[in-house]
Design a protein around this nucleic acid. Structure first.
Lengths: 249, 249
DNA sequence: CGGAGTATTGATCCCATTCAAGAACTGTGG
DNA sequence: CCACAGTTCTTGAATGGGATCAATACTCCG
């Protein structure tokens, strides 16, 4: 389990059977280590495989002509980068490592073969892409409609919940290996203003972000401030869907 | 064809065979008319079917506690609202009609059956969801990093290209049935500032938006101003993928 | 014709940006 | 273990883009 964050994550949605677990284990076998800052996929690249984060963090971002960058999302263990990017052929954004990381490459054929033969797994994979879409929608709301402090609070809430899910939160704290600059690029703020806003959050005794560690003393109050509703992250196994449901039946 | 915008759209990606077309025709059969402003799906709803736009426009949006709204995307003929929302169970945003519209409801079972038996169609459906994700990423960049004028220019560019694709652009103009308020909710600006920015665009002789019609005199120059790269819309049939490729083979 | 929603423009304000400069970290090589 | 260079962080002061408030016109529709 510990070595298999994907199984852990998919298991929330679906009762994975031994056969499914075997497939996941096979996927996770072909591992490679990448150093921090390594750019894994660049805009315009033609990925021949999809990648599964085993250890470490990565992030997606897009650069515009003016040189400004927008971070599109953060990847942590168990997350896949575009389980189906090969359909479009070309990546439309960059993905780079935030820390030294271990990733598993899964080639197109392996995915497609699994889709054919393991409906339960297929269903679970589909589910993760839908969660990712939900996250993107939440970011749209964040970028478009919230104040600086709510933007940052909201992002911290998302990351806290996701990190908690895969067991990365210890004593109200989790590692967030990003600079204030990158934080700003995620929420549409200047690094300077991110800095000031982090001070405000610290003064409010809600969050501390220092030496790449987020310490959340009062998650409830923070969620209140951020107007954060975790439903979209689909953290709980849904009671109203039979656990063994698959796409096929 | 004219009555089947979905076939037209999917046909760009994949050579649809008679069997595929028959399925699409069957889907499009169960039509219903909805008046403008009708809220089709509300946050928290449990959609029992997915919907295909046949005629008219709709939009997705999310409302936050303060009452502010963020528009998440616009739907035009041929677009589907969440071909797979039933996997998550609950809608996490609202969808409402912008005009009187004709939509076709496709129930869960029909989709799943088609996925089982028509790999080419499945592949094409998957492709459209990926394009939608690409659009969402472009919006993130828009909301986070661009100036007011570039935001609006960029949105007009997207809609122009999408409308053109389905034959809705005539003589450099297309209908965009939204208020300036809604435009603002899409790009993260006040309706007042949208108004001023539209005046600027008019003064620059690039775009006119009046009585719900967008007239673009110089699309090239507008794309330049917006730093707009249409690649992510996947408008061209890709030369490097065999047209008859499917997921299964 | 009247009323509600929508568009337009002006005046003022404020949140976040920009510019700048120093302090506190990194990590690296001697 | 220290020195040094390159990031990253922090804070101040000034600026500016877009928001807010407000008043008037336009448009559509019953």
């Amino acid at each position: 389990m510990d070595s298999n964050p994907l199984a852990k994550k998919l298991g929330i949605f679906v009762d994975l059977q031994p056969g499914d677990l075997a497939v996941i284990a096979r996927w996770s076998a072909d591992r490679s280590e990448l150093p921090a800052r390594h750019v894994f996929i660049r805009q315009g690249d033609r990925p021949r495989a999809t990648c599964l984060m085993i250890e470490g963090w990565a992030y997606r971002y897009k650069t515009i002509k003016s040189g400004k960058r927008q971070v599109l999302g953060f990847l942590m263990p168990g997350d896949m980068c575009d389980p189906h990017a090969f359909i479009l052929g070309k990546a439309d954004h960059d993905i780079a490592m935030l820390t030294d990381a271990v990733v598993a490459a899964i080639c197109k054929e392996d995915i497609l073969a699994a889709v054919e033969t393991h409906p339960r797994l297929t269903s679970a994979l589909w589910w993760t892409t839908l969660v990712d879409e939900g996250i993107a929608r939440a970011w749209l709301v964040n970028l478009g409609q919230r104040s600086a402090i709510a933007k940052i609070a909201s992002l911290f809430c998302e990351l806290w919940h996701r990190a908690k899910l895969i067991g990365l939160v210890h004593a109200d704290a989790f590692a967030l290996p990003v600079t204030q600059e990158q934080l700003g690029e995620a929420v549409g703020l200047t690094s300077v203003h991110v800095n000031r806003t982090l001070r405000d959050l610290r003064d409010l005794k809600l969050v501390e972000f220092r030496s790449k560690q987020v310490v959340i003393s009062n998650i409830g109050q923070l969620m209140e401030l951020a107007d954060f509703d975790p439903t979209y992250l689909q953290l709980q196994r849904r009671a109203d869907i039979p656990a063994r449901q698959s796409l096929a039946s």
